[in-house]
Amino acid sequence: MLSRALVIVIFVPLLILIFLKGDFTFLIFTEVIIGMSVYEFYKMLKDKGFEVASRIGLFLSLLLPVLVYMKDKVLFSYNFMGFSGDIIARFDIGGFVVFALMLIATRQILKVKINGAMAEISYTLFGIIYISYFFSYILLIKSEFSNGRALVLMTFILIWTCDIAAYLVGISIGGKIIKRRLAPEISPKKSFEGAIGGFIGAFIVALKFDVIFSFFAEFFCKNIHIFSECSVHSNISFTKTEALLLALIIAFFAELGDLVESKIKREFEIKDSGTLLLGHGGFLDRFDSALFVLPVVYYFVKYFIS
């Protein structure tokens, strides 16, 4: 219990600080989460006897967020023999998937081994897309929206709120009103009452997010003097309908992300993806909900809010 509290006390303020003012540290944070989660995922596979191109998969997983971060940035300018211009990084996920698949397939050809070839390609590529590509949406949210930092912080606060509210409601009245569990074969303790409680909690916080953001931002501005500038307003304001829809999709996809990872662990017959986060399990355990929520929040804001 003490170790779990220690992790929260240390890492939650650090994450908030990175979300509020981080730039290159934002990329480093993304790389650490992706790198450790992909490592844990491939290790789970290998421990159960599945073959996976873990080195190439980890390399591609760490390369992807760098390409997203450098998207549309001028890498360097040139002026040579009458030719001049700028080399600009153009990122395209379709091209990246083609490159990744070709690289993994080439490795298979060089190995000569036939048995398990398709499974190895599939498992490796799945890890890249499921973890690296999904989580890289955190960089797209930050860079493509004028209030991107606040949106990232909002996303994680809503995920945390949903998780805490679902837990508190679940242990209080879970299974007492609706007898059937949410996914008994995958996660026997999850209840419909808890899921509804998570949705309600996310809805309330979404409505009042600008006030919550101001509290966090003002606290960090006053107590941590490393900011060149510090705004205490998120410029995020939802109507009741928008907050309702946002809370609904976050509650649904956060639960879905958690259940997907739980099902993977069930198949591998393990409790946690790792042990580095002390009582909190592994990195994949802590960020499984975000993998599904971040892409959905990106498209929700892009097409329904902006």
Rank of each mutant, 00 (worst) to 15 (best):
F216M: 13
G198N: 09
A202Y: 00
G49F: 11
A117Q: 01
G95Y: 13
M81K: 07
G194C: 13
S146A: 11
I305W: 09
V301K: 06
I141D: 07
L62H: 02
V112R: 08
R90K: 15
S289A: 15
P13M: 14
L6H: 14
F300E: 09
K48L: 04
K265I: 12
F253E: 07
N223F: 13
A247W: 07
S37T: 00
V152E: 08
A202E: 04
T155W: 02
V211H: 12
H280M: 10
F252H: 01
F80S: 12
I224W: 08
F96N: 09
P13S: 04
D285H: 07
K48Q: 11
G148R: 04
Y299W: 15
I10W: 12
D72Y: 00
V205D: 06
I16P: 03
G281L: 09
E229Q: 06
C221T: 02
G281Y: 15
R181L: 11
F253Y: 12
V68H: 04
A5Y: 12
I114C: 02
E31Y: 09
L62K: 05
V32K: 02
I88S: 08
V296I: 15
F203T: 01
G198H: 07
G95S: 05
Y303E: 12
S172M: 13
I200Y: 14
G85K: 01
V112Y: 02
L244A: 11
S273V: 10
G95V: 08
E242Q: 00
S234D: 10
C221D: 05
A217Y: 03
Y167H: 06
D285E: 05
F209G: 04
P65N: 09
M36W: 13
S84H: 15
V97N: 10
I164Q: 01
A100V: 08
F96Q: 10
T124N: 01
A195K: 02
L103K: 10
G22N: 12
S187M: 05
F215M: 09
Y42N: 08
A100C: 09
L2Y: 13
R90A: 11
A165W: 07
I164V: 15
N79W: 03
K71L: 01
I196S: 07
R181C: 06
I8V: 15
K113C: 00
V211L: 13
K48H: 06
F19C: 14
G85F: 06
L151V: 12
K208F: 08
L101K: 00
T241H: 08
K113Q: 15
D210A: 14
